[in-house]
Design a protein around this nucleic acid. Structure first.
Length: 514
RNA sequence: CGCGGGGUGGAGCAGCCUGGUAGCUCGUCAGGCUCAUAACCUGAAGGUCGCAAGUUCAAAUCUUGCCCCCGCAACCA
């Protein structure tokens, strides 16, 4: 079992503003990082996110806005950084592909691969649309009229010199590696997908360059001043350029990339092939050993009703709007609870409100509130001690004792955010049921003080235990629960999650900024 | 005959690999209770498990055929 944990998100392409999908990956990664910090210690966890800033589209977007590429990316990067701060993303580092440390590592990696003979020069031939400045794939081209699928203008077949990375050399190695490391690609269905793709197709070598006359916003190839590095070779390297470097002999050295570290790459299912095929081959070719417990986990997509979310359809949801409207923790909770990680989900404000009312307000919030009230009412704001426990009380105690391991394993072993939360909510439901069955109001009337004491103390224990497990998912809520039960004299105060009234006028009461 | 995912009570899903009383959440209805945010707890109604055939003592679950939906060009998690 590894004793260090290194988790990454993709580096996001900064040609547009962040959307719900970006925030999904980062919230998941953040939750895992927070959880692992609790079990391995703060110093043994490293959480990386960042931005991908080179390439044609960025150059183009910069031109259109009248800025230099650097000015343009500097501007958009701020949006990402601000968002992560707002959403309580606890990343330890933030890498930009325009940083010196990254450029140096990419350059070294290219040199090493080139020297090994894994990079070669060849002619690249394809259909090129001059106005769009883009190659169209063979399938995209309407062959008869030879026009560009985007702009319908004529395209030309052109040929240019480029550099290629020999993926094909390592195909057999990769198949073997995947087969002998179950759990490397997750969920299982993605592993099957990759394996069958690898077995059914011969990998074509990866084009890793662009001629400078077409694109100069990129990292120059060290062995050819006429070319810059194409984005994917550039981008994937971020995972190692951020946490280490090559020494003089070309050996990669890093605290976060060794036998004792579990490396986890969280990605969206759209970039599975890059991470499950190109990336391991690149590492292997560079002589970098893949950590034994390395995981590439491809999660699903958020759909907007029946449609895919896309910029062109104009149905992109801005994470900040949702967080502002419903609260940061609510947003985090919803994304991780509503849909199993790995599957696609449907996004709607209606389902956020549903989750909010039933899980957060009714189950958790109400449990906290009614418990606080009883402490105030029956014990003048002092949390009583455990005096005597009946059978049911013992069962409850046993159940919350088992909670950390059970909910924790679902997270760290299975990446099942939703099931982990479900397990926590079992405890909450159990406590609510316990209240009904114990009928504390009767105990009070009958003056059964010892029973009442133990009963309330047990409720507090359930809330504390649940709060600890909720912490990685909803950091603010966890703090707030701790505070409420940590006061010298406990008062009920305001509800944690005031119910959203959907029956009368909408938007009448929204939760405060938490 | 391209590849993959899916079709289970009103909604969203689990179960299928390793056949054997069809489960969960939400919603609906009824009841209970009052510590609580009309919240909580209990119970009920509601399903020929896409269609058809086959294997079997027994199929949501295995086999075959068919029908329907969604991805597989780009932006992009």
């Amino acid at each position: 079992m590894a004793n260090k944990f290194y988790i990454t998100t993709p580096i996001y392409y900064v040609n547009a503003s962040p959307h719900i999908g970006h925030s999904y990956t980062n919230i998941a990664a953040d939750t895992l990082a927070r959880h692992m910090r609790k079990s391995l210690g703060k110093d043994n966890v490293w959480f990386l996110t960042g931005t991908d800033e080179h390439g044609q589209k960025i150059q183009k977007a910069a031109d259109e806005s009248g800025l230099s590429p650097q000015q343009f990316v500097d501007k958009v990067v701020t949006q990402f950084k601000d968002l992560w701060q707002k959403l309580n993303i606890s990343n330890d580092d933030f890498i930009r592909t325009t940083e010196k440390r990254h450029i140096q590592t990419v350059t070294r990696a290219l040199e090493i691969a080139y020297a090994k003979g894994d990079i070669y020069q060849a002619q690249y031939e394809g259909w090129y649309c001059v106005p769009c400045e883009n190659f169209c794939t063979e399938t995209q081209v309407q062959v008869e009229d030879k026009t560009c699928p985007d702009c319908n203008r004529p395209i030309d077949k052109i040929s240019e010199t480029n550099y290629f990375f020999k993926l094909s050399n390592y195909q057999d190695w990769l198949i073997k590696h995947i087969e002998s490391n179950p759990g490397f690609i997750r969920p299982q269905i993605r592993e099957n997908e990759v394996l069958s793709f690898l077995k059914l197709n011969k990998l074509t070598d990866l084009c890793i360059s662009r001629p400078k006359e077409r694109l100069n916003w990129g990292i120059p190839l060290p062995f050819s001043p006429e070319h810059v590095t194409y984005v994917w070779f550039d981008a994937l390297i971020n995972y190692i350029s951020a946490v280490g470097s090559f020494d003089n002999s070309g050996r990669y050295v890093s605290k976060w990339w060794d036998k004792d570290t579990q490396v986890v790459h969280l990605i969206g299912k759209d970039i599975l092939r890059h991470h499950a095929v190109y990336w391991p081959i690149m590492l292997h070719a560079l002589g970098i050993e893949l950590p034994k417990e390395m995981v590439v986990f491809a999660h699903g997509w958020w759909m907007m009703g029946q449609d895919k979310m896309s910029k062109s359809r104009g149905n992109v949801v801005a994470p900040l709007d949702m967080a502002d409207k419903y609260g940061i923790d609510t947003y985090r909770y919803f994304l991780l609870r509503d849909v199993p990680f790995g599957l696609d989900g449907n996004f709607s404000e209606e389902s956020i409100i549903k989750r909010f009312n039933s899980d957060l307000a009714n189950d958790l919030g109400n449990l906290v509130y009614r418990t606080l009230t009883m402490i105030e009412k029956y014990f003048q704001g002092q949390i009583p001690g455990l005096v005597a426990l009946d059978e049911q009380g013992k069962n409850i105690l046993a159940s919350i004792k088992a909670l950390p391991k059970e909910s924790g394993d679902l997270l760290s072993l299975n990446f099942s955010f939703s099931l982990s939360l479900e397990r926590i909510w079992n405890s909450i439901a159990m406590a609510n049921k316990y209240v009904e069955e114990t009928k504390p109001w009767n105990l009070a009337k009958e003056n059964k003080i010892d029973e009442l004491k133990s009963f309330i103390r047990l409720l507090v224990e359930v809330i504390r235990a649940s709060g600890d497990e909720i912490d990685p998912f909803m950091p603010q809520t966890a703090v707030s629960i701790k505070e409420q039960f940590g006061k010298k004299e406990i008062k009920k105060g305001n509800p944690l999650f005031p119910r959203i009234d959907t029956k009368s006028k909408p938007n009448s009461r929204l939760p405060a900024g938490r």
